[in-house]
Design a protein around this nucleic acid. Sequence first.
RNA 1: GGCCCCAUCGUCUAACGGUUAGGACACCAGAUUUUCAAUCUGGUAAUCAGGGUUCGAUUCCCUGUGGGGUCACCA
Length: 501
Amino acid sequence: MIAKKEEKRIRTRFAPSPTGHLHIGTVRTALFAFLFARKNKGTFILRIEDTDKERSEKKWEDELLEGLEWLKISFDEGPNVGPHTPYRQSERTEIYKKYLEKMLKEGSAYYCFCPKEEVEAEKQYLMSIGEAPVYQGKCRDLSPETVEKYLKEGRPSVIRFKSPSNQKVFFNDLIRGKIEVDSSTLGDFVIAKDLNNALFNLSCAIDDVEMEITHVIRGEDHIPNTPKQILIIRALGFKEPEYAHLSLILGTDKKKLSKRTGKTSLIDYKEDGYLPEAIINFIAFLGWNPGTEEEIYSIEKLIADFSIEKIQKSAAIFNIEKLDWMNGFYIRKTPLYELAQMCVPYLIKAGLIKEISLEKYSVIETGEEIHIEDIEKMVNLYHERLKKLSEIVELVGMFFKKELNYEKELLKWKEMSDEDLVDSLKKSFDIISGIKDFNKDNLEKELMEEANKIANRGNLLWPLRVALTGKKNSAGPMEIASALGKEKTLERIEEAINKLK
RNA sequence: GGCCCCAUCGUCUAACGGUUAGGACACCAGAUUUUCAAUCUGGUAAUCAGGGUUCGAUUCCCUGUGGGGUCACCA
């Protein structure tokens, strides 16, 4: 007697098709399958479903790999030893061929020679009379001799799966419970263009059993495919894996998240300056929660607390405001040094600075040379109001400008006249030029002392702040001045006074 | 149209038949502040509808309604 096999190790897979940008919904599917595998100490497999040769491109696969790596979603197994490479269906045609021949031989699949147009017309007709639009099985019982003959003649053909008629196919979805469909609504669907060109339902079904996948975790849009794949697997004499279908992510229009209603690809979020931690945390909570009131979760914590039972059945709308809040939260948690490093590429891309050597930059407009520490000072001023890294350009841009461009009206605090303004700015100028040891503490001391003397502090501080930044909203004037340096600070005050003349 | 799935504040969600239906984002108000942000305090806001089952339904069942997915020689 063979000893009872020990509990099967969990194996999940992520099976994207490289036909476009990595969609944020696809990322969530990957994340959930990843979390489930890691939580259960199982194996997580990446399988590129590139059987569609027309639409699949290497660049999309590269983007996919890069994106997942950025998010720290990792995989365990590949077809080669050495550095990790994903499985690619395009490299597995022999395997599909083998099974296809078997099915043809055993009669669970057959060649169909019906012209495409004819099948299409049939479908339209069936839909118009309210019947299930499925292939009616014209070629189902062609004799082997006829098939042989047609094949020899080179008639265009496809290979169809012979669906059992009137059989209930059901499976127990781990998220939704029992899902049942009647096999007659499936029809004899196409599983391959020919022996060397398997189509999705076939390649997917075969790979799931070949790779010994125990749990298929994928999007809800695959629910209609599941009974088809189960039927194929059973026809081949295997047992199907467990299935868990995730609800979709919707746009604000309550439709499948599309470009029209928001950013859809991971790369857009990355470029906008969302941190991977924030994205992971946010999408994990789109349809899952730990059942406690805690909402800040690292990927490690997600692995520890993840459970498939707590996945939501209903679709979730992608609420960018919450992502922004969460991203701001993670930015605030990022140490200043790291944050400054992260901001640099945005400043370079915006044409404000360029890198001249390690951690040294030159300011494009003024030619001035600055160090990463100077950037740290600037970033520090806006550390807690940054929601996305890309915002840094707008926020600290004024540090890199030769001249500020703003309306003189902006200098006015409440009911000040031009004369009041000039007086106020001159006062600031005098105080600041009188400071020997130019730093934030001294600036604060001297300026606040003066500001407290007058009825409204704003009369002194607002015009100064605008003179230094040219903006309605910004960090405080003392902080800005100390980051700007004495010389530039005085220059900008003069500039403002000149505006008023 | 057929088949399938779903339904708690505007949004993400909690409440495994008994809660003043809880939290978070957003919003509003207050505190703080020269402005904005951050922070703290408080507030507005929800069980799709109708039938059952039950002493008692957000929760279980049915019907309706609404929304979504899918019906490829795409995945």
